[in-house]
Each structure stands twice: as structure tokens, then as C-alpha cells.
Amino acid sequence: MKIENTKAQMRKGVLEYCILLFIKDNEMYPSEIISKLKESKLMVVEGTLYPLLTRLKNAGILTYRWEESTSGPPRKYYCLTPIGETFTNELSGTWKALEEAVTFAQKQSK
């Protein structure tokens, strides 16, 4: 097992949760999401976001509406569906438990 794979697996789960958190409060278009993700150093390249958003949309967690843009093609503004909101709340619970578990584990190792 490669260390890179483990990193990717960890980041992947967290990435989805973070995206959902960003969108939860106000609808966003991908570029905005990306700039937030870049700030939090979760994502390095933009391209990977699009398959992820599409997958979440297909899962019924996200939905979007079109908006015309002054600089380029029309933008998709994403927001959570009711299912998405429940899902995010669930993930929040999971994260809390994980955080506790991880903190506990880290303390143990010290």
C-alpha cells in the first residue's frame, strides 16, 4: 500500500464534506468553490472538481441553476437538495466522531 493512496483516500472523503459545507450556506459556482478549496489547500488543480460535482449531482445531493456570465460561458450555481442537507448533517456527525477518534488516537500515540 502506497502512502500516496492513503492520502488520496483521506483527502477525498474530506473534500466532499468541505464542498457540501461551502454550498450549504450560499449557492456557489465552481470557480468560487475552487478558490475556497485552494485557500484551504484541499485542492491543487481545478479539473478534478468537475467530475466530483457531477457525481454529487447525479446522486441527488446537489442541484444547480444556470446564470449568465459577463466574462465567458453561463455559470452553474450549485446548491444542496433536501437530501443533500440531510446527507451533510449526517456527514457532520460522522466527522465529529472521526475527529474525536483521531484526537484520541493522536493523544494515545504521544
Binding site: 470557480s31 468537475y50 460535482l53 457525481r55 466574462s71 465567458g72 460561458p73 453561463p74
Partner: peptide
């Protein structure tokens, strides 16, 4: 997996960035 949609999104994003460059 929604290939066409993903590709459209990626192309739109590239188009957006190129538009910025063209400005």
C-alpha cells in the same frame, strides 16, 4: 458517469479562463 456533462463543465471553465486572457 456523466462524461458529456463533465466535459462540458471543463470546457466551459477553460473557455472562461481563456476569455480572461483574451480581455
Amino acid at each position: 458517469e456523466g462524461r458529456d456533462e463533465i466535459m462540458t463543465d471543463i470546457e466551459s471553465r477553460i473557455a472562461e479562463m481563456l476569455t480572461e486572457k483574451m480581455n
